[in-house]
Amino acid sequence: MSKIRDTDYLTLSTRVRAMETRLVTRERMERMLDARTDEEAVKILTECGYEELPALTNAGLDDLLSKARAALYRELSTAAPDRRVVELFQMKYDYHNAKVLVKAAAIGAEPDRMLMEGGRWSPARLRDAFQRDSLGDFSEPFRQAVLRARETLNAGNDPQRADFVLDRAYFAEMADTAKAVGSPFLQGYVRLLIDAANLRSAVRAARIGKGPDFLRQVLLPGGNVDVSVLSSGRGADLAAVFRAGPLGEAAAAGAALTSPGSGELTAFERMCDDAVMHYLEGARLIPFGEQSVIGYLYARESEFTAIRTILSGRMAGLDSDTIRERLREAYV
C-alpha cells in the first residue's frame, strides 16, 4: 500500500467535524437523565440521527444500537483512505463473537442471541465459517486465536483460559495493525488501551489474592508499562508504576482498592476509561488526518455505551444520580 498522507484525510476530516455536531454530548445525556418519561429520553436521540424507538425495551435498544453501529462502520470503512484505521475499532466485535462461538460450541448452545454486529465480518458469516471449521478467509491472527481457544476449551480447561487466548490475540492484532498503518497517534491509543487493561487486571488479581503466576497469564505485552514491572503482584506499587502517565490518577485509585473488601471498582473503572478519552480528545486539536477519524470512532463507541447505560438504567428504575455515577466523560 502506498504511503497515505494526512492531506488524504482532508475531505473526511471536514466531514467528521460536521458529524461531531450530532454526537450525544454531556448536555444531551443530562437531558436524557432528566426526561420525565422514557419516550422523551429516547426522542433526544433522534436529534443525533438515531432511528425512532416506538417503545423502550431491551430488544428495541439492542436493535437501535446495532443498526447505528453497523451504519457507522459501513460509512467510514468506505470513506477512510486507510480502511485499517476503521477495522482496528471493529476487531473487538469479531473477538467478542469468537468468544461466544467457542463457548457455545463447547456446551452445545445456540450462539445467535449473543453475537454482535459491527465487526469486520458479519456474525452470520463468522458463525457459518466457524461451524464448518473453515476460517481461511479471515485474518491469520484471528484464525489462529480461534483455533487455540477452541482447543483450550475442548481440553477441559477453564473457559477463562480461552478468553485469555482471544484477548491476547485481539490486542496483538490491534497493535500490529496500528504499526502497519504507521500512525503514532493510533499506536499511542493501542498502547494506552493495553495499559488500561493491564491495570484493571493487576487490581482485580490483587483483590482476589492472585500472584505473579496468574498475572503472567493475563497481562498483555505492548503497553507503555512493561509487563515484567506489573507481574510482581504488589498492588500497592501500582500508583508509583503509572504515576507519570495518563493512568496515574486511575492507578492511585486502584492501588487503594487492592485489598479484599476495600470498596467498589466503579469509580476506578470510570477513571481508566476517562484517561483513554482524554488521550483521544487530542484528536480534536489536529485539523486533518487520521486522528479525526480515530477520535470520532472512539467517541461513537463511548456514545453507544452511554446510551445503553442511561436507557437500561431508566428501564431498571434507577434514579438519575445512580446512572450519572456510571457515565464516562463525553468526547464533546
Score class of each variant (00 low, 15 high):
residue 162 A to H: 03
residue 193 L to C: 14
residue 180 A to C: 08
residue 42 V to F: 03
residue 162 A to R: 04
residue 150 R to V: 11
residue 182 G to A: 09
residue 159 P to V: 02
residue 331 Y to R: 10
residue 240 A to C: 05
residue 15 R to K: 11
residue 221 P to V: 03
residue 247 L to F: 08
residue 155 A to D: 15
residue 83 R to W: 01
residue 237 D to L: 06
residue 195 D to W: 04
residue 208 I to N: 09
residue 261 G to A: 04
residue 300 R to L: 09
residue 163 D to M: 08
residue 197 A to P: 03
residue 92 K to I: 01
residue 105 A to G: 06
residue 208 I to H: 11
residue 64 L to N: 04
residue 11 T to M: 13
residue 185 F to Q: 13
residue 64 L to H: 04
residue 89 F to V: 11
residue 270 R to D: 00
residue 178 A to C: 11
residue 329 E to L: 15
residue 136 G to I: 14
residue 60 G to H: 06
residue 187 Q to W: 01
residue 113 R to I: 00
residue 108 G to T: 04
residue 94 D to A: 13
residue 217 Q to Y: 01
residue 85 V to L: 09
residue 26 R to H: 13
residue 221 P to M: 02
residue 252 A to D: 10
residue 202 A to S: 14
residue 87 E to H: 13
residue 325 E to L: 12
residue 264 E to Q: 07
residue 102 V to Y: 02
residue 62 D to T: 02
residue 189 Y to A: 14
residue 50 Y to T: 06
residue 255 A to C: 10
residue 182 G to M: 07
residue 171 F to C: 07
residue 253 A to C: 10
residue 226 D to V: 08
residue 105 A to S: 13
residue 43 K to F: 07
residue 290 E to A: 15
residue 50 Y to C: 06
residue 114 M to R: 06
residue 329 E to W: 11
residue 20 E to I: 05
residue 38 D to F: 06
residue 186 L to Q: 14
residue 255 A to N: 10
residue 211 G to P: 04
residue 299 A to M: 02
residue 173 E to Y: 07
residue 179 K to A: 15
residue 104 A to I: 07
residue 130 F to T: 15
residue 111 P to E: 01
residue 88 L to K: 10
residue 22 R to Y: 03
residue 246 P to F: 01
residue 113 R to N: 00
residue 324 R to I: 08
residue 207 R to W: 06
residue 163 D to Q: 10
residue 298 Y to C: 12
residue 329 E to F: 12
residue 181 V to Y: 02
residue 144 Q to E: 15
residue 242 F to L: 09
residue 2 S to I: 14
residue 223 G to P: 04
residue 269 E to G: 05
residue 177 T to S: 14
residue 15 R to S: 11
residue 264 E to M: 02
residue 262 S to L: 00
residue 233 G to L: 03
residue 197 A to G: 05
residue 275 A to M: 13
residue 152 T to K: 12
residue 71 A to D: 06
residue 248 G to D: 01
residue 225 V to R: 11
